[in-house]
Design a protein around this nucleic acid. Structure first.
Length: 413
RNA sequence: GCGGGCGUAGCUCAGCUGGUAGAGCGCCAGGUUGUGGUCUUGGAUGCCGUGGGUUCGAGCCCCAUCGCUCGCCCCA
């Protein structure tokens, strides 16, 4: 067993082999699709001044109060490992003066950190891709961002396992009225609520709507929805969003119980969910956050975006593209090895993956060629060298052919 | 932060009512001094997660601790 101290920190893990390939495939696919929608990639720092997150996520949210990796650096400043991506993007928008050149269409990918109890699809260092469309206030923007997420899931081949659930949180006025109605409703049933939900009644009554407690669910079923509380403007936005999603041909179901965990959301809230991942069923989620850029010290700026869990998407992928099969160059003897290096370089220069072992006789080297999944072995000994050829062995069929040295690359391509 | 399950070889796991460790796969070497993938012969590998306790004796029982895992919470 490993010595103490050589295992990764709880909630972190090493990504190698197929895990890494799955991960990379998710990121590469999302990056490409986001590009098709006109989004450019940004990279922002992995840690920020603590206020960047404390201010934007809500001072009382669980993420801020008990899940952030916050520490004083050597200069005594309080910094925090980013627990999510949106706050940093908005900070960067303001820092770089880009509130003057809107819209900005941003894609990002990278690690995030939250001190939570690890679980399937949930880690302390986890990885997200995300996109933010900053500037437009039209529901068309929300629809396009959702459509892009949908295209990414489709391209990854996981859309069949996933459904889009959509809701509106209304504007500030709608939500205040709705919140008051919910407090009235749940206070009447206070004694029947779970302990957790009694707590939520104080802190974040909307959260009771997605409680998993069976008793809560009955009370929730009788709770009002936001629809009658929507202001005319909020209603118009909500109608516009659903029309636009139809035009983008993105299927969705309306779920009035969808809520967002972070405080900065308004209007649109959506989740792509699956039942294939146990309790961690949300795979891509987001919404509109018109107040956040202003919270960050910029001018009032509407925005909409989402984030998706790379680790969770990687779990859902059916098959990952395997790396290209290499060509194994197999020299016999020192003189042959000198010539073999030339062949090796030529193969690589032509874009072929090629490897040559560092030691070993013919048998050992062919064993290795087989193990790395090589398609061809290029065998080059004294005898072949004298004739200016190599024997190229097709490792699937076992057939072996004399090929002139200068033609080896073309033969293997 | 709360509750359940589980930690034995590199991996997957077996190990009886306590009697001082096993299989398969993988790995290494040979059968084949210039031919792999099949076959065959042989070999190596373990602080039985860690610390303490009970016992003549603990992989097995008890306590603690760390880790993994599932659920709650939270959230992507």
């Amino acid at each position: 067993m490993p010595l103490m101290g050589v295992q990764p920190v709880r909630g972190t893990r090493d990504l190698l082999g197929e895990d890494q390939r799955r991960h990379a495939h998710v990121v590469a696919t999302a990056r490409r699709v986001a590009g098709l929608y006109g989004f450019d990639e940004w990279q922002t720092p992995i840690f920020e001044d603590t206020t960047v997150f404390a201010r934007s996520l809500g001072e009382t949210s669980d993420v801020v109060t008990k899940e952030m990796y916050t520490f004083a650096d050597r200069g005594g400043d309080s910094v925090t490992l980013r627990p999510e991506g949106t706050a940093g993007i908005c900070r960067a928008l303001v820092s770089n003066g880009l509130t003057q050149s809107l819209p900005q269409k941003v894609f990002y990918a990278g690690p995030m950190f939250r001190y939570e109890r690890p679980q399937k699809g949930r880690y302390r260092q986890f990885h997200q891709i995300g996109m933010e469309l900053i500037g437009p206030a039209e529901p068309l923007a929300d629809a396009e961002v959702i459509a892009c997420g949908h295209t990414i899931l489709t391209t990854l081949g996981v859309a069949g396992n996933v459904t889009l659930e959509l809701n509106t949180l209304g504007d500030a006025a709608s939500r205040a009225a709705y919140r008051a109605a919910l407090v009235t409703h749940f206070t009447a049933a206070r004694d029947a609520l779970s302990d957790d939900s009694r707590m939520r009644l104080e802190k974040n009554p909307l959260r009771i709507l997605d409680s998993k407690d069976a008793g809560d669910r009955e009370i929730v079923a009788a709770a009002p929805t936001i629809a009658p509380f929507l202001t005319p403007q909020a209603q118009e936005f909500w109608d516009g969003l659903r029309r636009a999603l139809d035009l983008f041909a993105v299927p969705f179901i309306e779920n009035p119980r969808i809520v967002r965990g972070l405080d900065y959301y308004s209007h649109t809230a959506f989740e792509f969910v699956t039942d294939a991942l146990g309790a961690q069923g949300t795979v891509l989620a987001g919404g509109r956050y018109d107040g956040l850029v202003a919270d960050m010290g910029g001018p009032p700026t509407p925005a909409v975006g989402w984030a998706a869990g790379i680790d969770r998407l990687a779990l859902l992928l059916a098959d990952v593209p395997a790396p290209a099969r290499p060509v194994a160059v197999v020299p016999l003897g020192d003189a042959a090895q000198a010539a073999a290096i030339g062949v090796l370089s030529a193969l690589r220069a032509h874009g072929l993956r090629a490897e040559m072992a560092y030691r070993g006789n013919l048998k050992k080297r062919l064993e290795r060629a087989n193990r790395i999944g090589a398609k061809f072995a290029v065998i080059l000994g004294e005898a072949e060298l004298a004739r200016g050829v190599a024997q190229v062995k097709d490792l699937d069929s076992g057939t072996q052919t004399d090929v002139a040295l200068h033609a080896v690359t073309a033969f293997c391509a």
